[in-house]
């Protein structure tokens, strides 16, 4: 039995990838996450300039629904500073996917060109941070913009391009089709759902930015449906990476059955000790594979469509 999986030309030791935005600020936390047993890590989203992001509260848990609402606002050290962390991380041979964002095509290109010489596994394009101040959701919900940016970035790098898709659209397949036509190498579904929490005592939204994005257990059925729809449309034309609300090994299986070849895990690794969580995930996935007589991850992928 093998947990290894392939995402295009990339082979990972197992299908569990650290999702962007969790434990991804420095080389040391990313290295720790990988050493906990993950297959690869995605960094925090990196832009052209250092940014402090939004006023706090910018992230808190919602206990009843085992979820987290956040609006970090793309706080990041800028790609030039982050490059030093990346270099340290890559010295340890950690399979690394760099999440990048930009306000415009030019910004995307600048960040990508500034990092593309590094031995990274892929870029993940963040078009859809629903927590951002300015409405960057314009890119993620606009099929033409997605096509243009992916196509242009494709000509700037040979590093695989993954596109992270927002669930905040009426037809996720339409946007995904634009990304595929533009030349991306994998689809990542889904990003956070637009969300808000209001304090009824003081009668105001709690997040400093008022609006935020929901991750955690409540997001899982949304992610599963998105991956299912994408797989139904694309079949094996493009690898799909499932993300949203993975708290247990069973959730990973569910994403694979929906059509994913790998998963990204964020919130649950962040709120606990990643070392313990990854061990539990591995145990559960292996146990399931034994019980259902699967010898590889690819045999599970898309199983719910038969």
């Amino acid at each position: 039995m093998s947990l290894a999986t392939k995402i295009g030309s990339l082979t990972l030791r197992n299908p569990m990838i650290l999702a962007s935005g969790v434990l991804g600020t420095s080389y040391s936390t990313l290295k720790r996450a990988y050493e906990a047993g993950l297959g690869a890590v995605v960094t925090k989203s990196i832009g052209i300039n250092p940014s402090s992001g939004n006023t706090n509260p910018s992230i808190f848990a919602l206990n009843e629904i085992r979820s987290v609402i956040s609006s970090i606002g793309l706080a990041n050290p800028g790609f030039q500073v982050f490059r030093e962390d990346l270099e340290k991380l890559l010295e340890s041979s950690v399979p690394t996917i760099v999440s990048i964002f930009g306000e415009s095509m030019e910004e995307f290109k600048e960040v990508l060109n500034g990092l593309t010489d590094l031995p990274i596994q892929a870029f993940e394009l963040n078009f859809s941070c629903s927590s951002s101040k300015k409405d960057r959701a314009q890119i993620s919900t606009d099929p033409d913009l997605v096509f243009e940016i992916v196509k242009e970035l494709r000509t700037n790098t040979t590093v695989p391009l993954w596109v992270k898709l927002t669930p905040n659209v009426s037809n996720i397949v339409e946007i995904a089709s634009s990304a595929v036509r533009g030349g991306c190498d994998a689809l990542v579904a889904v990003d956070t759902l637009k969300a808000m929490v209001i304090d009824i005592q003081t009668k105001q939204p709690i997040l400093g930015n008022k609006r935020g994005g929901l991750s955690g257990a409540a997001l899982k059925p949304v992610g599963i449906r998105s991956v299912y729809d994408l797989y139904e449309h694309f079949d094996e034309e493009i690898p799909i990476i499932g993300v949203g609300g993975i708290y247990r090994g069973e959730d990973i299986i569910e994403y694979l059955l929906a059509g994913a070849t790998a998963v990204e895990i964020g919130t649950s690794l962040g709120v606990a000790y990643p070392e313990n969580m990854v061990r539990f995930f591995q145990m559960k996935v292996k146990k399931y594979m034994e019980e259902h007589k699967f010898s590889s991850i690819s045999e599970i992928t898309g199983g719910a469509h038969k």
Binding site: V22, T25, S26, T29, S70, G270
Partner: peptide, 10 residues
């Protein structure tokens, strides 16, 4: 966050 997710304090 205070509970480990953002890791800004790491």
């Amino acid at each position: 966050c205070g509970f480990g997710a953002c890791a800004n304090c790491a």
